[in-house]
């Protein structure tokens, strides 16, 4: 049976997003519906300093905090710069644009269509996850991370 191919897009903003802005845009995206999978990309904000002379000490960071999306609490691990989305259909894109227009008022943004999240396992994925790995999780999870993906229930 041929598997469905879902369209993908990404929202790229001129500035890296504050947690409050991320919370606002993600809540609007969740309300919009039509999003199958999502990845928040950006430079990492670790809880513990990972290297350098201060290695191992606590790293308090105001941008690393919990945000509330839908009915789910999410711990932000990155300073969000790009939102990657896999959609059920390309018809959702105008709604995403409306949502973005509401939130990104102080700086510009772009919505680009393309392929940004992995849909087929590579050889490395096969070696790391085995033959029976759930394809929906492919490209969403860091194989080294102990934390799994977060499932947000849409409305």
């Amino acid at each position: 049976m041929t598997e469905a191919i879902y369209p993908q897009c990404r929202i790229v903003t001129e500035r890296l997003l504050d947690p409050e802005t991320t919370e606002k845009i993600l809540n609007l995206i969740v309300e919009t519906g039509g999003v199958r999978r999502m990845v928040l990309n950006g430079p990492r904000l670790p809880a513990i300093v990972p290297y350098g002379p201060a290695r191992g000490t606590e790293n308090p960071h105001t941008l690393r905090r919990q945000i509330h999306i839908g009915e789910q609490e999410i711990q932000l691990e990155v300073h969000v710069g790009t939102i990657l989305l896999e959609l059920t259909s390309a018809d959702v894109i105008p709604a995403l644009k409306t949502a973005s227009d509401k939130v990104f008022t102080n700086f510009t943004y772009r919505i680009q269509e393309g392929k940004y999240i992995k849909t087929d396992p590579s050889l490395v994925d096969y070696a790391k996850f085995g033959p029976d790995f759930d394809k929906d999780l492919l490209g969403l999870c860091d194989p080294k991370s102990k934390q799994g993906p977060i499932i947000i229930q849409g409305t």
Partner: peptide
């Protein structure tokens, strides 16, 4: 890219 408040990204 800069943060919304205009500061350069700093992991620490």
């Amino acid at each position: 890219r800069l943060a919304e408040d205009g500061m350069m990204f700093d992991m620490l």
